[in-house]
Every structure is written in structure tokens, then in C-alpha cells.
Design a protein around this nucleic acid. Structure first.
Lengths: 276, 276
DNA sequence: AACCGAATGTAACAGTCGGTAACAGGCGGA
DNA sequence: TCCGCCTGTTACCGACTGTTACATTCGGTT
């Protein structure tokens, strides 16, 4: 199989840090300090819901889930997708109630780590404390990475970046990084990317039309990772009928959201002088 | 002074959790365990830059700063604004190098907490460990809250939400919550909100035209907090010439980004069944 | 005081993307 | 197997907002 992910430091990779081995703690070690409970979930079931008492963290052992932020007025958004090795529920630490929803996208197995005991165990098990802190920091970096993407990329570029991120996740689990099945539907993808599900479909169709990917429903093949990475780095997509050259940073070509940042690469904000 | 922020649980408030007292740790206590260094910064100076060796966390004692995420292709975005009481640098925990930039918006005083010693001190000082973990979790919640806003609100609504957030910060420091001075310029505001600075200006002008705020350069007065909160909760702004009624959730009125979520308040994603 | 650059504000134009609708295809239940 | 429902796809139109250009104000320097 040919490798799509060849740059170990793509924009979205950086957020992940050096946490290469997902499950640094085995269940036997944990069991010495904690009453770990294995839970199985069906697709659509909630791990926890916003407003419920916060009682545990959860280590994803199999399957995939989504986190949903929701406002009292009904607005909601998927803020992350989690897979094997991820620790979920950490966003509610310091609160008495859960801050958001966590919902299984498919059949899952998760390990429940009761919260006060986890803190106690951290004192006995420095590796656990480190793992918890690292998980928190990594989640911050992931969010920031996506905030950068959502703030500077247009719809097509976001979709390209998302596919690369999914490929990376898939590769991290030891599977092919150029052929995989999306775990979430168009609505969840759109919510996460801050666009509408029709726009996601449009973008996917365009990427397929360009020959960058092949997609049927949720089954994806990445055919031209180079082109996708080119897109996800804020470059404008070459139009279907456009010439052969890849148009590196052409000025005043279209009005995509991305050109704005390309136009002012050295503008370091308002009061950001170069200081020592 | 009349109070603008009367609901203790606004959408963006939730993220902050119960961390009401910002500086739970005084410098004398810290000094017993750590070589704390007081640093003064001028506007525009960097606390740290992306790629530098990660060596310390910083507690903001006075002034305000911004965090900038940046990609190798030149794209960049302000991901947060920090004020007195905030702990910055935590996003690089677990990495050998800093993951982003931190830049002073004005004259600042910050306390440098060298990183390995901080971890050591956490073992001696449970309050410090709790403070660190709480800071990390709170930052995740703040990011998620803003991801919800950026994903579901249009430009005017984002600006309204931003002003309310700034008012809340200002109130948290003990100052007026209806009259304050923005610490950042239009460019930084725009970057944070994922829009262009002209759009920020447009939105601010419109809010002023509507009588919701009074603004001159960076000095802001919130005149109608109720209307602002109404906006920031995803409701569509009533047009200048529109009738008197506040148009609660009118269907098919314009094409703003916000109506999308109002249109499907019960749609809990793709595979989200109601499961016991 | 005059000048200059940066930041801010305003306006006109145009493109992307959201809203809507209609349809196709897949999946599960009867 | 058939049917109904949900997901996914495509097309059209227009609002929102990015882009560009320019005027104005502010702050600091000459």
C-alpha cells in the first residue's frame, strides 16, 4: 500500500505531540489502584450527557465517539471525534456536572475510571498523572489546531484537512491511511467543520471530480495525498478546467477565505512588534 | 452603575466553570517550592514563541496577552486572550518545544514558573496540582465554547458574544462590565472570531447604529446587554427599519449562518438515538 | 508644527456558502 | 420482498462576507 501520510509534521499533526503510544497504561496496572469498569456501548448511546453529575473519565478501548457542545438555545456543535486510546471526559474536570455530551458513533468499548479515585491514584502512580496532564494539553493543542483551520480555510480546504486527519488517525491505529471508512455522517462532519452538510457533500464531490479522492458514502480512498495536503495548507484548489500547473500562491485568484492569510504572511497582529 | 451581566450562566460563562478566584496561589507560597521569576513585558513583546524550548508556565499578574497559533505556511490565528489570573503556556505541556506564540497586548507583569520544578512542586502542593489541572480543563471548555460560537453564529452575533465575553472578563477583575477598553485591535479581534477586520468594523457599527453599544476606537459602552445576549444566543438581529417586535425565531428570514441551527433544534446528529 | 505609518472606518463589488427543494440510494422493519 | 425512513447528492438563488480601494484618525517621529 502506498503511503499518503509522508510528512510526520503536518499542520494537524503538530497538535498531537509526541504521544505516539495511545494506551500507555494497561488495565491490570490501573486495576491495582482503581475500580475500572468496562462498558460496551451501541451506536448512538451516550457515555455522558451535559448536566449529568460528573463522576468519571473514560478511556476509549474500541470504537469511536463524538463530543457535542450544546447551548441552552438549541445550538450545538461536534467539537471532537475520539478513537481508541483517547481519554474522554477530561473537559468536565473541576465541575460538578458534565460540560457536554459524549456519544458513540458505533459499537464501542470504553473503560470507566471513577473520578475521585483517579485523582487519588495519580498520587500513587505518577505515570497516570502524567498521562492525564498530557491528555489535557494535547486536547488543547488539537482544538487550537482546528481553530486555526476553521478560521483560515474555506470549505473545500477544511474537508481536505479533515480527510487527512482521519487518515492519520486510521494510520495511528495500524490500518491503511489511504483507504478507510468514515465513522461519522455528513451532518457530524459538517458540524465539526463549521459548515453545512450540503457543503460537505459538494466539497467531497469536487475532490472526487478532481481525482484527489474516491468516495462512496462513507468509504474513502485518498488518491492524491500531495494535492490534499497542498489544499489543507491554505492553497487554492486548481479548478477542474484550469491548466496543468499547480498555481503556487497566485495573487488575486478568486476570493476564497484562504487568500486573506496568504496575502499578509508577515502581519503579526496589531501590537506585535519584533521584540528581542 | 447598571449591570449588563445579570445571568450568571451565559453560554460563554459555562466554560469558565467555578474558578471564580483567579489567583488562588499567592507568590509567597509558590516561592517556597519554586524559583518564581517576575517578568515585565512591553506591548508586543513575546512571552514565548513557537519552536522555542518549552521551559516554563506563566501566571499573568497584570496586563493582557494573546495566544497565536501559526502554521508553517504562514496562516495564523489568535486562539485566546488572557488576563490577570490566567495560567499560560500549558498547551505545550508534554512537548519539548512551545506549540504557539504568546504576545503581550500591553504592558504586562507575569510570573514565570519553571516547568520541571512545577511538576515537582505539584507533588508537595496538592493545591498547585489541582490549579494546574483545573486550568487545563477550563481552557478546553473555553475553546469548545468558542468553537460552538464560531460554528453556529454569524459575524454580528460573534462580535456581540465577544463583547459580552470581554465584559465578563472585565467584571471578573472588579471593574465595570458595561464600560471598558478593548485591549486588542480590530485585526486580533477579527482573527480570533474567524472573520475579517472590516467585517468586525461593520458589525460594531451596526451594533452602535442599533443602539446596543457605543464604541469609539477601543472604548466600549454596552447600552443594551439584553439585546446583545439575545444576539449572542443565535437569534437574528432585527433590522434597523424593522418593526418593534424582537422577531423570536422567525422562519425563513434571511440566510444567516445562525438560522441553520434554529431550523433543526432537535436533530442530534446522525447516529444519535435517544438511548436510556 | 509637520510628517508619516499604522490602525480604523466606510463603501462598492463579487464570490462563497447557506437555505431550500427535489431526488436517489441504502438500510431496517414489517 | 416490499415499504418507509434516513442519509446522501445535486441544483438554484441570494445573503453574507471577503476583497479591494480609499478616507480618516491616531500616535510617534522628524
Amino acid at each position: 500500500m502506498n503511503t499518503i501520510i509522508d510528512t510526520p509534521d503536518s499542520p494537524l499533526d503538530r497538535a498531537r505531540g509526541n504521544c505516539s503510544s495511545p494506551l500507555e497504561l494497561d488495565i491490570d496496572t490501573l486495576h491495582q489502584y482503581l475500580p475500572v469498569v468496562r462498558c460496551k456501548l451501541a451506536a448512538g448511546e451516550y457515555v455522558y450527557r451535559m448536566g449529568q453529575p460528573f463522576r468519571a473519565l473514560y478511556l476509549v478501548h474500541a470504537g469511536s465517539l463524538k463530543s457535542c457542545e450544546l447551548a441552552e438555545d438549541g445550538r450545538e456543535q461536534v467539537t471532537s471525534f475520539r478513537i481508541r486510546g483517547d481519554l474522554i471526559g477530561v473537559e468536565s474536570i473541576g465541575l460538578s456536572h458534565c460540560a457536554c455530551d459524549a456519544i458513540a458513533l458505533e459499537h464501542c468499548e470504553i473503560w470507566e475510571l471513577p473520578y475521585p479515585p483517579v485523582i487519588a491514584a495519580c498520587l500513587q502512580l505518577p505515570a497516570l498523572q502524567a498521562r492525564l496532564t498530557a491528555s489535557l494539553a494535547e486536547e488543547i493543542r488539537r482544538h487550537r489546531s482546528w481553530m486555526l483551520a476553521l478560521g483560515t480555510l474555506n470549505a473545500e480546504q477544511r474537508v481536505a484537512a479533515f480527510l487527512l486527519d482521519m487518515a492519520r488517525d486510521h494510520a495511528r491505529l495500524g490500518f491503511s491511511d489511504c483507504h478507510f471508512v468514515l465513522r461519522m455522517g455528513r451532518n457530524d462532519m459538517a458540524s465539526f467543520l463549521g459548515i453545512q452538510h450540503e457543503t460537505v457533500t459538494r466539497a467531497l464531490s469536487r475532490l472526487q471530480e478532481l481525482g484527489y479522492i474516491a468516495i462512496q458514502r462513507r468509504e474513502v480512498r485518498l488518491l492524491d495525498g500531495e494535492a490534499l495536503r497542498f489544499l489543507a495548507c491554505g492553497e487554492r484548489m486548481r479548478r477542474p478546467m484550469a491548466g496543468a500547473e499547480r498555481a503556487p500562491r497566485i495573487k488575486s485568484m478568486g476570493h476564497g477565505r484562504a487568500t486573506s492569510s496568504l496575502r499578509r504572511p508577515a502581519a503579526r497582529g496589531d501590537t506585535a512588534y519584533e521584540a528581542a
